[in-house]
């Protein structure tokens, strides 16, 4: 049997708006994934620690405060420092298109913006994890 997709969801920074991430958590669970939601005000260190400890396939981040251009790069930086290169980082929030493009260039796999259906996030994650696994096999 193939392993269920494991995903860590977290909210970095000071923002406490957790409606979106909780909806995503419920949708991922209903789609058969294992979801670890580590809660509010997680520092990049806490997030990457939890991701390693829980051996997840992906980290999902939600930011609605406008601090995304500080927080996403900080998490990428922490992943790099800890030599984490097999975990997918994705996220969502109130993020303007130009920032979205820049973040995706930096290494965030995907940014979802308001109105995106949960089905889209589920499909994205399934494909990204599958691709990651086949890449690993080739290596």
């Amino acid at each position: 049997m193939t392993r269920k997709i494991r995903v860590l969801l977290a909210k970095p920074g000071l923002d406490g708006h957790d409606r979106g991430i909780k909806v995503i958590a419920a949708a991922f669970r209903d789609a058969g994934m294992e979801v670890i939601y580590s809660g509010l005000r997680q520092t990049p260190q806490m997030i990457v620690d939890a991701a390693i400890q829980e051996d997840v396939d992906a980290i999902g981040i939600s930011i609605l405060s406008g601090a995304h251009m500080t927080l996403f790069p900080a998490i990428l930086e922490e992943m790099k420092n800890r030599k984490v290169n097999d975990i997918i980082l994705f996220g969502g929030g109130i993020i303007p298109d130009e920032d979205k493009e820049e973040l995706e260039k930096m290494g965030v796999a995907k940014i979802f913006t308001p109105g995106a259906p949960t089905e889209e996030a589920i499909e994205f994650l399934r494909q990204a994890v599958e691709k990651k696994k086949s890449d690993e096999k080739i290596m």
Binding site: G13, L14, D15, R41, S65, G66, A67, M69, T70
Partner: peptide, 21 residues
């Protein structure tokens, strides 16, 4: 957010959030 959460603007947790919302 730093004001709402009781941090001054020079606190490390305020980084990137000052004057945003």
């Amino acid at each position: 957010l730093p004001t709402l959460m009781g941090y001054d603007s020079d606190h490390p947790r305020s980084l990137g959030e000052v004057g945003k919302c």
